[in-house]
Amino acid sequence: MPKRPAAWVLGWIGALCLGQGVSAQQLPPGPGAEVLTNRCLICHDADIVTSQKLSLTGWTNSVAKMVRWGSQITPEERAVLQPYLAAHFGPPRRSSGGQAPQPDTAAGAATYQRACLSCHDADIIEQQKLSKAGWTNSVNKMVRWGASVMEPERQPLVDYLYSRFPPR
């Protein structure tokens, strides 16, 4: 019996399915997207991948199973794909405190440093996990309580806090 009897069958079925699923353009960008398209989406629609919430270990095990089941993915491709999957389709985040702020939140970050950290330490803020509405309410309360946040600074601050400390 050949080692991977089903590989050509899976590829053939996948070819029939192409065009029905999520296209590579809709996947989060990165070198993993190309591997995902070429090696996974030939058999699967993207939804079965994007609906998972697996750790790197979980994704490594899943890809290993797919290899046992006939995937032709190479070890080099796995080294790219598995971290990509864990980064974009990983478990809900416990904490986002260590993340670097996105460039477009620099204004909010500056307001955070100046207006929030003058009275609080970061600890009380970093433990929160609020929706954008929740952050808006919190910032509005602090402004009522004397935080020196000018009106044009308010929305960038909310955006920054939400980007760093979202629900998880």
Partner: peptide, 12 residues
């Protein structure tokens, strides 16, 4: 408070 979902503002 930290165990409630969805989370709310406050000491966790």
């Amino acid at each position: 408070r930290a165990f409630f979902e969805p989370a709310m503002a406050g000491i966790q």
